[in-house]
Write a protein that binds this DNA or RNA. Structure first.
Lengths: 372, 372
DNA sequence: GCGTCTATGGTAACCGGTAGCATAACCGTG
DNA sequence: CACGGTTATGCTACCGGTTACCATAGACGC
């Protein structure tokens, strides 16, 4: 009877379609649990739990013995069980809509640098902040996963609706964004303006006077920030950005190519172009090649990001670099800050870009640099 | 007494340092649970569970009523609790050591295409298969997380030790790798050889005879595969790859630049170079620029991967394309295959690359193509 | 010697789900 | 109309941890 009953059970769910495969998979062979460790050590689960969580009230030798047993058996507490009890998962989310894979990858690596060895994992979540149901999606994501924390990178890091949502969902977060923030917030700041100013100074020093700025799209705060910094840098040399030499791109190669063609086809074309990012600067390179304009002899170009492509095109491009991986690491570290520090809403860290000089800049044709 | 006892308790962990912040965080306000839904619907937890898991033996109207209540309240079952009971998490891992961020990003996006709406999440795990403790790390990772499945991409996808480990850990996996496999396995196959053969045919048709192959490092199976395909393609036109024109690179820009310089400095330099990937092909571009060798008039170049850089350098590069995002999606789909299909160990899918012709190929100098 | 405090460890309940089994209702059939 | 088989549903234990609360053993002060 027992047997036949079991056999009947084996044929479960006769009309089952679409049940999660997880439910059908064979059981993995069971591993050691906290109960096993407690039994091996001759103590209670509670004591082992104290050791795992580094809680006090465990004798030093007891602690050492338990730790030895844990190490010997390679025991790893189950994050799902711990998370269930803690009402918090051991997952850190990266929410992003950044079109630059190199940037995203470096952020990921930086976050993982910080997570390594802590027992937390990184969950990736791309998004479209202008898509329908964006906020609902995000809410579902963070609530369902009970994320330990979230890192946001541009441009979604500039979306205050999302920040507000994360707060209401009680999900800690750190934003990476450039420095023009009105109120104190929990973020990793990048001083894009300073990098852009450095680019402006360098072009001014080389003697350029007709200098163009190829801006990123207004959706990105960095576009404004870099533009403002560039203008400020020029002003230090008594230069102004002529209105007709400030043109709007989209942070894409294609927009750089199109705007580059237009700028360089003018009779009084600029002798230098500062592009809001390397993608657009690369487009300017192509436009120059098409028109037979030599870089850097006829045209100086500076980009922003110091993407790998900056050294892969010819001539190697001068660009502005941010320590992206380090920024990712720092942002993740910020999630582990003490509650007090987190409540302070102060910036987690600030980064200033550096100008990496290569072969795409030179004095303008028929002109002499003001100094070296 | 009671009160003072509680107050004493509030000062818990007086010398606590290093306890997981999760344990210290305030509790998120509690959400709806399956018990709440059951109460609202006037049924038992078990019945709600059946609805969630699409199990049979629930009356259609009961099911509809429960689904309506779930939708109305935006209830989402807790993946940690489900995972604990299932002994399986709802996480899919991507284990990778691929140096190409564009490739990795597209794989990620493809996997996420497949996971979207299924309630599974993507966890990223870079690795170094030659580092110390590689296998132990991986074992700890997959066992601790009880991963639902893992996607592997080159070159770690070619590591049989890891495949064996995943099997012994009862962790389903799908590998993306090129087609030269000896035994049938659960993988997404890419016919890199066919793409390389197409490149060879094209160069032969244009009339090239002195053709070089710049190989990737032996660690990558794709390097052999592409080389073999290229040689086979040449053979169709009665051509051979001269031993001195097969050189070894490292899939990096720098190696492409160095090998390119050497190849192009020879008195009898090749009129065409097929590089194992776009990074190296870009290095060849730079070497040609340095030496004043024009592309494509003096030198034809074909790369592999169709990376974004292929269209951003000048002249736009002919390259071989694989549908990377689609491959990632397909690999993830493979994890959801029925147990029967999974046990079959048959390939999940196969992809053949296509040759994307751009401006970096032309007939050799002072020669006439054999046909169009 | 006794009450109080501190250090330590045990027990039961719980986190939010799922699995096994019992049971009731329904169905057609001999 | 009793009966076996199928469908629908609920009860209870359990997944692997953590917490609340309690019990006990020494140390200490009077």
């Amino acid at each position: 009877m027992k047997t036949s009953s079991r056999r009947a059970r084996a044929r479960r769910y006769p009309d089952d379609r679409g049940a999660p495969p997880a439910a059908k998979r064979g059981r993995p062979r069971s591993r050691l649990t906290i109960t096993d460790i407690a039994r091996l050590a001759g103590v209670s689960k509670k004591t082992v739990s104290r050791v795992i969580n580094r809680a006090p009230y465990v004798q030093a030798d007891t602690r050492a013995r338990i730790e030895a047993i844990i190490a010997e058996h390679g025991y790893q507490p189950d994050p799902q069980a711990r998370g269930l009890a803690f009402r918090r998962s051991f997952l850190v989310g990266l929410i992003h809509d950044n079109p630059n894979p190199q940037y995203v990858e470096n952020i990921q690596l930086g976050i993982l640098d910080s997570l390594a060895g802590r027992g937390y994992e990184l969950v990736i979540r791309p998004c479209d902040r202008r898509g329908p149901g964006f906020l609902e999606d995000m809410r579902g994501f963070v609530e369902r996963l009970r994320l330990f924390g979230v890192v946001l990178i541009p441009s979604v890091s500039e979306d205050d609706r999302l920040a507000k949502l994360l707060e209401s969902a009680d999900c800690p977060y750190v934003r990476i964004a450039c420095a023009s923030v009105d109120k104190p917030q929990r973020m990793v700041l990048t001083h894009d303006a300073r990098g852009a100013a450095a680019a402006a100074r360098r072009l001014a020093e080389l003697g350029h006077r007709r200098i163009a700025y190829l801006s990123g799209p207004p959706l990105f705060r960095s576009a404004h920030e870099r533009g403002a910094g560039f203008i400020a840098g020029l002003a230090e040399y008594g230069l102004e950005l002529a209105p007709d030499l400030a043109v709007l791109g989209a942070y894409t190669y294609e927009s750089g190519l199109a705007r580059g063609r237009e700028l360089l086809a003018r009779p009084d074309r600029p002798t230098a172009i500062f592009a809001g990012n390397d993608e657009m600067a690369t487009g300017v390179y192509s436009a120059a090649h098409e028109l037979g304009i030599r870089i850097p002899q006829d045209l100086s170009v500076i980009g922003f990001d110091d993407a790998p492509i900056a050294t892969r095109i010819w001539p190697a491009m001068t660009s502005v670099r941010l320590p992206v991986r380090e920024m990712g690491r720092t942002a993740a570290e910020g999630l582990f800050a003490t509650p007090k520090a987190a409540a302070a809403k102060a910036p987690v860290a600030e980064f200033t870009p550096s100008l990496i000089e290569r072969e795409s800049t030179a004095p303008p044709p028929r002109a002499r640099p003001t100094r070296s």
